[in-house]
Design a protein around this nucleic acid. Structure first.
Lengths: 333, 333
DNA sequence: TTGAAAGCGATACCAC
DNA sequence: GTGGTATCGCTTTCAA
């Protein structure tokens, strides 16, 4: 193993000088810099992460807590992870993977054993037990999502309320007077995952404002549930002409079922979905969507957490404005 | 921060004794053990990971290299990750996340900076540039998947060749005489991802053996591509009665299209898919599948890599036998 | 602009 | 069965 002493000897300088060349924390003559950098390259030196962490109390590692349900949202979660990993590396950080089901203890463990400098936590619920722990930990952290009590912590997420509003506004503008929301599984509401309720709130508010008849129907992930859901909605209101789908899992099922019933999209039924773009274009009709800005959120999460690492910041909840992408599944009535 | 010295003082013993209580590397009197453990609990002591790594040259971290494409396979990748993370934690290891597009350099970096003790590498291609690097690294590693030249390295994967054979055998037994394989996107074959070719090989061999007419058609991930694919297959052979789908992305599209054409599954067309179970039961007809044993593979990968860490082992490629789960999408002709 | 040396917090060897 | 302490590789303060 190549150590800083080896490099120093090869370059004919002191170990501390090598360290300073690497960190840039003091000015070094160009000549010395050249010498040291050459030795580093020649010997293939990589600083030992443990030693560095021990001496500097900084690990250059971010812990990322992931939900590991495989039933839902997988594509979106993956996009977050990709964005977080990429952005972290751009700032010379590595990513340590934790899973949500390790619970709040895992956060404590990672921090007290100095495995990571900061935490990014996904899939935050309304009354998330990890939030108080995070608060007590006194370590930089960013939540992706937002709990009920977000005071004192930093969050970033899509503005789901605005997203709900935009969906309704778009349909209302196209002349639709009766619309329905096919929501996430009942379990999601029960778990109190914030985004579901925030979306619903925006949806309802906008419906009131635009004078549109609007109903809401959670839907679990089986094909049958999706079909039953469409059934009920059509039975309850034959005039229904607009569907907002906030549930990627049943997207193919709902669209398939509409087609099977001879209900054309968008001629007979306008459909707008909240889902990743990649999914939107993989359907029989390419879907008008509110994109989930996973990449942006992931990137932002890393940047916000690094800013905290760099110095004091004020906790804030950052909600990203929804971006409606109009494709072929919505039309004027 | 609580250190081992604090614990030692509180328990009235030497720091080394605390260390030995923790590691179990020498026998300690019950009384001392009790005392030390109590102090640890009271003070909330967690050993500093960096210090430990520095002193012992072991990090208790496994590096996991993930593909970050979001287009395909996401559910399966997620299941791997979940299994790896869970199994690693059960053995008191943490997981460091790397992405495939960081390339072979990332492997070198992680090893030389002593960020991880071993590597688990996913999405291995036929001529994967990471393989020679891995070989030169002299660190325990397991590939999920298998390159062409697997000598000297440890791999674990589903036995895709056997899976291809099983699919054909199952359909042949049911009396089908003409079947087709809807395969992964052309890009996947081009990339030389081993599993695609191995599956195809098994498929062809079994078709020959059972005297079944069999064709192969790669299919990219758009809805239109899927429809076109079905179109062509039906045009080429009106007698086609069996479909093997090795492409989760187009599963809903193909099934939707069949239904739209009035082709019933399984009455008119038997369908067997290679996909996660969760996906199989989310279709209009629950699908007969070869399950991808992601959980088993992930678990095994961790165990194999830990065994290497424990002592010398002989490199081997472990192929898991496919398990066909019969559901409602296949029937006798 | 550079060097010397004191830690950082654990492990594991050497003593007893 | 237990204690003392050199050691791991780096950062950073103090000195020059």
């Amino acid at each position: 193993m190549v150590t800083i002493v080896d490099v120093a000897r090869a370059a004919g300088v002191a170990p501390s000088t090598v360290s300073y060349v690497l960190s840039g924390k003091r000015s070094i003559s160009p000549e010395t810099t050249r010498l040291v950098e050459a030795s580093i390259r020649e010997l293939g030196y990589h600083p030992n992460a443990g030693a560095r962490a021990l001496a500097s109390s900084k690990t250059s590692v971010l812990a990322l807590v992931l939900p590991m349900r495989t039933d839902q949202n997988v594509a979106v979660v993956m996009e977050f992870v990709a964005a977080v990993a990429k952005t972290a590396r751009e700032h010379d950080y590595d990513v340590l993977l934790l899973t949500k089901d390790e619970g709040p203890t895992a956060l404590r463990r990672v921090v007290s054993s100095a495995l990571a400098d900061a935490l990014i936590v996904m899939d935050v619920e309304a009354k998330d037990p990890r939030v108080p722990v995070l608060r007590s930990l006194q370590r930089p952290s960013v939540l992706i999502g937002a709990p009920d009590a977000a005071s004192g912590i930093t969050c970033v997420d899509l503005d789901f309320a605005a997203a709900g509003q935009e969906c309704v506004a778009h349909l209302a503008e196209l002349g639709h007077r009766s619309i329905a929301l096919i929501g996430p599984a009942p379990a999601v509401y029960r778990r109190g995952t914030g985004f579901a309720r925030r979306f619903l709130r925006g949806f309802r508010a906008a419906a009131g404002k635009h004078g549109v008849r609007a109903v809401n129907r959670p839907c679990s992930h089986s094909y049958d549930a999706a079909v039953r859901c469409v059934d009920e909605l059509l039975a309850a209101d034959p005039e229904l002409t607009g569907l907002v789908i906030h549930n990627e899992a049943v997207l193919p099922a709902v669209l398939g079922d509409l087609r099977h019933r001879g209900i054309r999209v968008p001629e007979d039924m306008s459909v707008i979905a909240l889902c990743p773009d990649s999914m939107a274009v993989q359907q029989p009709v390419s879907l008008t969507t509110i994109a989930i800005p996973a990449e942006e959120v992931g990137e932002l999460a890393v940047e916000m957490v690094l800013r905290q690492l760099a110095g004091p910041t004020v906790p804030e909840t950052r909600l990203l404005a929804p971006r409606l992408v109009r494709r072929e599944s919505t039309a004027a009535i």
